[in-house]
Simulated scan of single mutants.
Amino acid sequence: MKKKYDKIALITGANRGIGKSILKKIIKKNIYVIGTSKTLLGVKKIKKLVNKSGTGILINFLNIQNTKKKLYEIIKKFNTIDILIHNSGVIQDNLLINMSEKNWNDVILINLNSCFYLTKFLIPNMIKKKWGRIIFISSVNAYQGNIGQTNYSASKAGMIGFMKSLALEVARFGITANSIAPGYIKTNMTKKILKNIKNNINQIPIKNFGTVKDISNMVLFLISKKSTYITGQTIHINGGMLML
């Protein structure tokens, strides 16, 4: 990393969908981007996207020891991460009565427990610098629930509770923590879900599904100087399907 960058950002699940859109926006802001993926193909795609303005790293949050090792290597190499955008997530839908322990544990581990490991490793250096931006990508279903998603909804609701407590702990150090709760956004992960509810789109007042840019635009705002007085908040981007 020979060029001088304003900040260094870590984006999890950066090889496709929302994470990819966030990555493409951020690299235009003179920010060095480290993107994670759970597959080598995903890492390859990230490296191609960022070119010399970042890199891709293989992390599978199901493997706790490997996750710790990779995060330690990131800190050792880059010294500090100024911006964390935790977008990585998984769905393993099933009615609770049919849900296996693996369905439950995998989703909680990847979507929620990863919040603990990521922030635990990255916050000390943010505190030293007296600056940091942390953004968690949650879900509308953290608030309203969804049939077949007790695991997913619980993980995303837990993420929001985690974020609020974290925001209180680190605010005095110039670090903000917020979450974004997307509604129905067009991505590969939601393709099957959107197909099933296409005929019921009337539940969305705006009458269409969101795009990944709707989320990445908000991320850009939350890491900018314009958002310095916003912390502990969940920004809802759902076309009006849930109003709080």
Rank of each mutant, 00 (worst) to 15 (best):
Q65L: 14
S227P: 09
N141Q: 11
I85W: 01
T80G: 11
I206M: 12
M1E: 14
P182A: 03
T12M: 07
T36S: 15
G232T: 01
E169D: 13
N66W: 03
Q65W: 03
G240C: 07
I235R: 07
G210A: 01
K128L: 15
I134A: 04
M126Q: 12
N98A: 13
T150P: 00
I230W: 02
M243V: 11
G17T: 14
T55D: 12
T187S: 01
Y184S: 10
N188W: 05
P124D: 12
H86N: 13
F221R: 09
D82V: 09
D93R: 12
G145L: 09
V107Y: 00
M218F: 15
N79W: 13
N79T: 14
Y229L: 09
L166N: 05
R16G: 06
I26S: 09
G132A: 05
S53G: 15
I134P: 02
I147R: 08
V107M: 01
N79L: 13
N63W: 09
M218T: 14
A154E: 00
L96F: 13
K213E: 15
E101F: 11
I81F: 11
L244R: 14
T190S: 11
A154L: 02
N105W: 04
V107G: 00
P205H: 05
L244D: 10
V50A: 12
L41D: 11
G240M: 08
I223L: 02
T228N: 15
N66T: 02
V50Y: 08
L112D: 02
G19R: 10
